[in-house]
Design a binder for these strands. Sequence first.
DNA 1: GTTGCTACTCACCGGGGAGTGACAAAACGG
DNA 2: CCGTTTTGTCACTCCCCGGTGAGTAGCAAC
Lengths: 221, 221
Amino acid sequence: MLNDPMVLTPIAAAAVPVEPEKRIRDRGATEKAILNAAKSLLAEEGFQNFGINAVARRAGCDKQLIYRYYGGLNGLVEAIGADLGTWVKDRIPEDTGGMFLLTYGDLMERLSLLFLEALRDDPLVLRIVAWEVSENTEQVRRLSEARSKALANWLERMRGSLTPPKGVDAVAVNAILFAAIQHIVLSASAAEQCAGLALKTSKDWEKAATALKRIVRGVYG
Amino acid sequence: MLNDPMVLTPIAAAAVPVEPEKRIRDRGATEKAILNAAKSLLAEEGFQNFGINAVARRAGCDKQLIYRYYGGLNGLVEAIGADLGTWVKDRIPEDTGGMFLLTYGDLMERLSLLFLEALRDDPLVLRIVAWEVSENTEQVRRLSEARSKALANWLERMRGSLTPPKGVDAVAVNAILFAAIQHIVLSASAAEQCAGLALKTSKDWEKAATALKRIVRGVYG
DNA sequence: GTTGCTACTCACCGGGGAGTGACAAAACGG
DNA sequence: CCGTTTTGTCACTCCCCGGTGAGTAGCAAC
């Protein structure tokens, strides 16, 4: 009643006979295309418009394939999360550039700034952070866990034999420090400012970095 | 074809003749009901499921009234934002309890903790903060502005004649401090932890507060 | 060939969202 | 009393979502 394919299809097919743009049959490539589509979609649009349909559209394939290859959105998100385990390591130089890190304060100052930089130019992870504080589903919880575990691990490995000053709860302080960094970058990406502090130009960011250093030095000396 | 009201309606009407539960006609009350519904919905469910239909459902009225009285969701959000201007003032004691705040450090320590507390038990504002870092629409931007303006104002008023230590960019440092607080509370509400720091029991929170104090004292002395 | 597997597409379903126009009924003004 | 305005309700359209079942196109072995 509404649509009669037997009438419509031949006409359409005749009107647009070419423009095949045939997707070559390659499961591996398609899977990658889907994963990349998902990542870039998440990075560019955020979790708000993140859905099966949108990913399929961007990947240029049918959503059915997402169900088949990843078992739906959940599986796809999990696949994204898998990369997260190595994010910090990949993003941040393992050796801190031959610097002499004599004290725990030296270390944390350096790591804070590195983390800030890394977050600043990884929109995907940034969106995930935003997601983590906005939703509390199994999906997101897994992402969150993967990320925080990797982070803790990384911190531990970088620490080496350095120890924080006596009487300072380093876990708590570091959590606050990293929370601050995440929120600053989040705010900046959403509104180009945070609590009255402009975060647009590189000059703005220098100010933020200086303040951050000061804070770190304040606690850790 | 699908539904024939002429057949169905009389039957239904006859079957359920009573149960009037008549909404009394009172525009003011209805407006308030809508606004409260919107606020509580936002506070409890977050911005994700925040929409005309949901608000109307919760308010127990027709969504048409939201369009009529508030001009749609935008207007409604703006009405919510209007309260935000006075949030800090309402939530936090004007006089800091007869305390002796001798230094800028004293002040900021106190304000930080107060802010933390205030955020912790105001789910609505917390959700708005999450919204601010997740979306960048005109709607949210207005909320954000109202809030940050009020915050800056409040800080300024509380500061009085106290001045930060020389050489410290108080604006930047405070932005980072408040960012940290916001993110900690956000994280806690979403995952009961932040960067490996548990944030569930009051003991956990004491640890966080102690660390925060240390940080503040570190920069401001 | 034709049989069978794999990669892929299509058309459709139910559901819920935003938004709108027409209507019912109470309240008000004369 | 009657007409108008205000207040509230209903029914409907359009759109997009997630999900699924049925079908198509390439490809390889027999």
